[in-house]
C-alpha cells in the first residue's frame, strides 16, 4: 500500500459518501444520473466476486463491502425511495448505458490476463468503470448548471482515478514484476474522460462562478 493508493481509495470513498449524504439528507437526487449509479453497482458486483474467497487484507475487504453497500443503496434510493425518486429527472438521464455494457463485455472476453470467469468479470468491471461516468457527464451537460455536491462528486471521482495513476507509476518503479497494461490503459482512458470536466470545474472555481459546462 502506498500513499497515492490510500489517498485514491479515500477520495473514492469520499465521492460515494458525498453522494449518499446528499441523497439522504436533502432527500433529492436532482442532477444525479441513475444510469451511472447502476453501472457503478454493476462494476463493483463484477469486480468483487472474490470478496469471500480471496482475502487480501481487512482493509481491502471492508472497503469492498462499503463500495458495494453504498453503490447499491444509492441505486435503491433513486429507484424506490418514495421521496427521492420523485427528484430523479428520467427524461434527461437518457444515455443508453446498455450500449456501454455489451462492448465492455465483448472486449473483456477478447482482451484479458487470464481466460477464467472471475478474471473476465474483473476485466469487464475495469472497462465498464472507465465509461460508467459518461451518463453522468452527459446529464451535467444537459442540465448545464451543476449543484456543487454533484460537481464535487464528479471531481472526487476524477481525483481518485488521477491518484491511482500515480499509484501505478509508484508500484511500477518499486515492484519489479508489477505490470498490468489492461488496468493502466483502461484507468488512463477513464481519467482522460474527466479531463475536460476538470478544466471547466477549475475555470468556475478560479472565476468563482457557478459551474456550467458548454452545450
Amino acid at each position: 500500500m502506498n500513499i497515492f493508493r490510500l489517498a485514491g481509495d479515500m477520495t473514492h470513498l469520499a465521492s460515494v459518501l458525498v453522494l449518499l449524504l446528499k441523497i439522504h439528507t436533502i432527500k433529492s437526487c436532482a442532477g444525479v444520473s441513475l444510469k451511472t449509479q447502476e453501472l457503478y453497482a454493476l462494476v463493483f458486483a463484477c469486480r468483487y466476486l472474490d470478496i469471500f474467497t480471496n482475502f487480501v487484507s481487512l482493509y481491502n475487504t471492508v472497503m469492498k463491502l462499503i463500495f458495494l453497500g453504498s453503490s447499491f443503496s444509492i441505486v435503491w434510493y433513486m429507484r424506490y425511495h418514495k421521496v427521492v425518486r420523485r427528484s430523479y429527472d428520467k427524461d434527461q438521464d437518457t444515455f443508453r448505458h446498455y450500449f456501454l455494457v455489451l462492448p465492455c463485455l465483448v472486449l473483456a472476453l477478447l482482451i484479458n490476463e487470464k481466460f477464467t470467469f472471475k478474471e473476465v468479470m474483473w476485466t469487464f468491471s475495469l472497462y465498464l468503470e472507465a465509461v460508467a461516468i459518461l451518463p453522468q457527464l452527459v446529464l451535467l451537460q444537459r442540465t448545464r448548471n451543476i449543484d456543487n455536491l454533484t460537481g464535487q462528486y464528479v471531481f472526487l471521482l476524477g481525483a481518485y482515478r488521477g491518484l491511482y495513476i500515480l499509484n501505478w507509476i509508484y508500484r511500477y518503479f518499486t515492484e519489479p514484476h508489477f505490470v498490468h497494461w489492461i488496468t493502466w490503459i483502461s484507468g488512463l482512458v477513464q481519467t482522460l474522460l474527466y479531463a475536460d470536466f476538470f478544466y471547466y470545474y477549475y475555470q468556475s472555481w478560479k472565476n468563482n462562478q457557478k459551474l456550467h459546462l458548454p452545450a
Partner: peptide, 10 residues
C-alpha cells in the same frame, strides 16, 4: 502485504 499476482487493488 500485497498479494502477488492476485488483484490486490480495489
Amino acid at each position: 502485504a500485497d498479494v502477488i499476482g492476485e488483484h490486490d487493488e480495489l
